[in-house]
Amino acid sequence: MKRVLPVLTVLLAIIAVWYVAAYFLNLNWATQQLAREGIEPTFSALFNNTMAQERPVLPAPHQVAVGLWDGLAGQKITSKRSLVWHGWVTLSATLAGFAIGTLAGILLAVGIVHSRAMDQSVMPWAVASQTVPILAIAPMVIVVMASVGVTGLLPKAIISAWLSFFPVLVGTVKGLRTPDAMQLDLMRSWNASASQVFWRLRLPSAMPYLFASLKVAIAASLVGAIVGELPAGATAGLGARLLSGSYYGQTVQIWSALFTAAALAGLLVLMIGWIERLTLKRMGLAR
C-alpha cells in the first residue's frame, strides 16, 4: 500500500488536470454548438458537451478509456480496427529493429574498443547519424527500399535500428572500457590473448552498461517503428493509426493509439529490466 499510494496520487492528479484541460480546450466548440442549437449555455450544459464531443480538441480521459477498450477488446484481433493487431504490426518491426540495432551497436563497439582506426572514424559518423532528423530519413529509406522491391517489415525495422544502435554503441563502448589499467596488466602478466581479455574481462564488465543502454534502445526502437509507419500511407501499425486519426480529426483514435504505444514501451522496458535482473543475478552481480 505504501508504494501504491504515491503512484495513485500522481495518477489521480494527472486525470484531474486532464479533465480540467479537456473542459477548457473544448469549451470554444461547445459554446458555438450550444448557440447553434439555441440551448442556454449553463455550466452543466457546457460541461456535458465538452466531455462528450465526437471530435474534441482534447478528449476526456473516459473517452480515451472507452476508445482503448473498444480497440483492444471490442474487436476481433485480426480486424483492422483492433489495436492488438496494429500493436502487433508495430511490435514485430520494433523487435526486428531492436535486434538489428543491438547487434550493430555491439559489433561497432567491439571494433571501436579494439581498433584505433575505428575509434577515430566510426564515432563521429555515429553521432552525425543521430543528428539527422529521423523524420527526414524515414521516407527515403521506405522509398529507396520499395524501389528495389523490399516493403513491409524490413524498411521499418531499419529505421528502428537507426535509432536504437546508437545508445547500445555508446553504452557498450563505455562498458568495454571500464576495466582499469591494473586489470589489463594482470591479464598481460598471464599472457592472455585479446579474445580472452574480451570474453573474460571486458564483456562481463560491460553488462550493467549494456542493459542500461538496451532499455533506452528498445524505447527508441518503438519510436523508430512508429515513425517508419508514417510515410508512404501505411495502413497497418500504430503509426498508421496515428496518421489516419489525424487526417480525419479522430482525436480519440490518436490518443488510444498513443496510449497503446506507451503501454507497449513500458512493457518492453520492464521486460529488459527483468532479463537484466536475471542475468546479473546469475553472474553474481546482484546483491
Binding site: 591494473m182 594482470l186 602478466s189 553488462m207 553474481g284 552481480l285
Partner: peptide, 19 residues
C-alpha cells in the same frame, strides 16, 4: 612473462565481482 614466470599482486585485489 610468456613462460609464466611471474605472479603479480597489486595494491588492490582486482578480483572480478561476477566470479
Amino acid at each position: 612473462r610468456k613462460a609464466r614466470a611471474y605472479g603479480y599482486v597489486f595494491q588492490a585485489p582486482g578480483l572480478y565481482p561476477w566470479r
